[in-house]
């Protein structure tokens, strides 16, 4: 045996046994992972490798890959100022309303308000997205022919004319977000067992609209409204139909500016299980909920 082999064997006798815990890879067996450039380390940004998914996958609207996108390029557009705070009134057309009446989804023998429209279950309203009720649009104004007592949040002149020509009444009324929450799902609201809130007055920029008799605002003088009815009839060239005594009481029914449900006063608690109404007796509360 050579000297070198003997030395190596001697060394092996002293060293610990070769096992999984004391061996390691040969030097250079492992490559360092390369450091890719870009947001996701030089990969395909979730689009996969080749094919339709890599090529026909569309980026989000307004995204221009590396560019500063157009919608962010200009820092100031004054006419958009406060657009996210403006009151929104999702549209309901007269045609929609006529269809609801034709299909018996809305009872015309009772005053129609936001609660009646929401109770059809065909419309959605989101007060947290600055929705403050519905606006009645003039689509189907020519065919509209129902005698109704309608309370809506926003309308235009032709719509008012169309309803009054048919022998109905319109009122525009404001509801704050908390009142709207109670009206959107009345069953859910009554089940909560909290008092019916009092309706807040409209904000300063809406007071003018809701106190204008030309808009049939709920804060305007009723005598001025009946005068405006005649003015509008002359303008649009129709005669106001004679009011039927049977439904006159229904047509004249109005809510108090602090009231949100017909016949139910703010401050009352409705108990649906026992079918009773709880009314506050406290003087302080009575004063708070008074009109």
């Amino acid at each position: 045996m050579s000297n070198t082999t003997e030395k190596a064997l001697n060394l092996l006798r002293y060293l610990p046994r070769v096992c999984i815990s004391n061996i390691r890879d040969n030097p250079g067996a492992h490559k360092q992972a390369r450091r890719g450039r870009g947001q996701h380390g030089g990969d395909y940004h979730g689009a996969g490798n080749k094919g339709a998914k890599a090529r026909q996958s569309y980026t989000r609207l307004g995204y221009e890959m590396g560019n500063n996108p157009f919608y962010l390029r200009f820092p100031f557009e004054p006419y958009y100022k406060g657009h996210h705070l403006k009151r929104q009134y999702p549209p309901v057309s007269l045609l929609n309303l006529q269809k609801l009446i034709d299909t018996n989804r809305i009872d015309t023998t009772k005053p129609i308000d936001l609660v009646a429209i929401m109770n059809t279950g065909l419309f959605r309203l989101y007060p947290d997205q600055q929705h403050f009720g519905f606006q009645l649009t003039d689509e189907g104004a020519d065919i509209f022919s129902a005698k109704i007592n309608l309370e809506i949040q926003w309308t235009s002149e032709p719509v008012i004319a169309a309803i009054e020509r048919a022998g109905g009444f319109v009122t525009t009324a404001y509801y704050d977000a908390q009142s709207l929450h109670a009206m959107i799902n009345t069953k859910k609201f009554f089940e909560r067992g909290i008092p019916i809130p009092r309706r807040m007055m409209p904000p300063p920029d809406a007071i003018e609209y809701y106190s204008n008799p030309a808009n049939r605002g709920y804060l305007s003088d009723p005598e001025k409204i009946s005068k405006e009815r005649l003015v509008l009839a002359q303008k649009y060239g129709y005669t106001l139909p004679k009011l039927d005594d049977q439904i006159l009481e229904m047509l004249k029914e109005r809510k108090d500016p602090r009231q949100i449900f017909y016949g139910l006063h703010p401050g009352w608690v409705v108990n649906l299980t026992d079918k009773v109404i709880l009314k506050p007796l406290d003087e302080e509360l009575k004063e708070y909920y008074a009109s």
């Binding site: 009772k110 609660v115 929401m118 109770n119 279950g121 009345t186 069953k187 009554f190 449900f261 017909y262 016949g263 139910l264 608690v269 409705v270 649906l272 079918k275 009773v276 109404i277 709880l278 009314k279 506050p280 007796l281 406290d282 509360l285």
Partner: peptide
């Protein structure tokens, strides 16, 4: 702690039923 009265008036309950959805 608040004083209240319990009303069981059917005329008032008609208005509650009117507000409830079908």
């Amino acid at each position: 702690t608040v004083k209240y009265e319990v009303s069981k008036n059917p005329e008032e309950w008609k208005y509650v039923e009117r507000a409830l959805p079908l």
